[in-house]
Simulated assay, not measured.
Amino acid sequence: MPSFVQAALAVVAVLSPLVFPPASSAAETLRINGTGSGLVVVKPLTAAFQKENRGCVVVMEKSLGSSAAIKAVSRNALDLAVSSRPLKPAESVEGLVQQEWGRTPMAVLANRGVRASGVTLKELAAMYAGSSAKWPGGELVRVVLRPVEDTDTKLTRSLSPEMDRGVAAAHARKDMLVGITDNEAFDSVKKTEGAVAVMALTLALSEPNAVNVLKLDGVQPSVATLATGRYRHLKEMYLVTRKDAPASVTKFIKFLYSKKGRAVAAKHGLLITEAK
C-alpha cells in the first residue's frame, strides 16, 4: 500500500503541467503548497500580496503536506513549500534551502458541542489514554489522532510524559479516528460529537467558531500568549525553496516578513520570527 506521500507525489507527477503551469510571458507565476496548517495562513497573505503585485499569479491547490511539497520543489513542480518540519540532510543536498517563517500555538481543539472552556494536560492525557471517557458536560470523548510519524503526533507526545504515554496508548487501540492530513483531522473535530485533537491554532482561526479552542492549564492559546511565553506549546513553520528560486519567490517572501505580512499572519494565528 503506497504511503500518503507516495500517493501525493504521484499526483504531482501526473498533474503538474495542469496544476502548476509554467509562468507565461505576461505574468509571473508563483506555485505554492505544503502543510495544511500553513496554507490557511498563506491564503489571505497571497490575496494581500496580489493586490500590490498585479503581475504575479499565485497558484495554490489542495494541501499535499510538507514532505510531498518539499519533493515537488526539488523537482521544480513547485516554487515554494510551507513545511511544518525542517529539511532533512538529504533534502538539503537536493539544492533546497529553508528559513524559519513563524510559530503557531499547538492548541486543544474540541467539537463545538463540547461544553468545556479548558482542560489540563493531566485531563487531556487521560482522554488520550482512554481512562477518561467523558467530558465534564457528559459528552463522550472521541480523540482524533494523526499518523504515528506525523509532526503533530510528535509535538503532542512532547507536551508532557503523561501525554507521551497517552498518545501511545491511543495509537494502540482499535477503531480510533485518524486524520491523515491537517485538514482531514480538523474536519473530524468539526463533524464528530465529543471530538478533541491537538492541532495548530491556524486551522481554528481559518474557520471562526467552527470548533472550540480550549484553554490548556488555564492559558488561552493565541499569538499574544505565545509571544510573551505564557503559552509554551508551539509548532514551527518553514519556507522551503530551491537555491535558484525565481524572482517571484524572493518578492513574496519579502512580503511575508513585511509589516503588513506580519500583521496578516498574526491575525490568522502565526507569530512571524525574524528573517535570517
Rank of each mutant, 00 (worst) to 15 (best):
S83V: 05
V41L: 00
V40W: 02
K62A: 15
G261K: 05
C56G: 00
E61V: 01
V148D: 15
S16D: 08
A68G: 07
L214Y: 12
G113W: 04
D244G: 06
A275R: 13
E162P: 00
K62N: 12
Q6A: 15
S3L: 06
F4S: 15
L256I: 11
S258V: 05
L96D: 07
T120M: 09
R115V: 12
V108E: 07
V14R: 12
L18W: 08
V211T: 13
V249D: 10
S84N: 15
A170N: 06
S66C: 04
K122Q: 11
D182S: 15
V119A: 12
R230V: 00
V198P: 00
K235N: 05
E274A: 15
G166H: 01
K88H: 10
G95E: 10
I70N: 02
G34V: 04
A126I: 01
E184F: 03
Y238T: 01
V93H: 10
S117P: 00
F255M: 08
W101A: 10
A185L: 11
A185N: 04
S222W: 02
L271K: 15
A210H: 08
A195W: 02
A69W: 00
K267Y: 02
A200W: 02
S16A: 11
V93W: 04
P22I: 06
R146D: 13
V108T: 14
L109P: 12
A185D: 01
H171V: 08
T120N: 10
A170F: 06
L256C: 15
T120R: 10
V14N: 08
A172T: 07
F255R: 05
D217L: 09
P161T: 09
L30Q: 07
W101I: 05
V108S: 09
F252P: 11
P89E: 03
D152K: 11
C56H: 04
V114S: 09
V108G: 07
V59K: 11
M1W: 08
L145P: 06
I70K: 00
M127D: 03
N33L: 01
V14A: 13
S131G: 11
G38Y: 06
A126P: 01
C56L: 06
K243H: 09
A48Y: 05
A69D: 03
K235W: 01
L64A: 02
N76H: 13
V41T: 05
E123I: 00
L18R: 07
V11S: 14
E236V: 04
G218E: 09
R230S: 10
V19L: 15
L30K: 07
G65K: 05
L9R: 14
G102R: 07
A81I: 04
S131D: 10
L109Y: 12
A72I: 03
T228I: 00
G137T: 06
L256Q: 08
N111D: 10
G218C: 08
K267T: 12
E236S: 12
E61P: 00
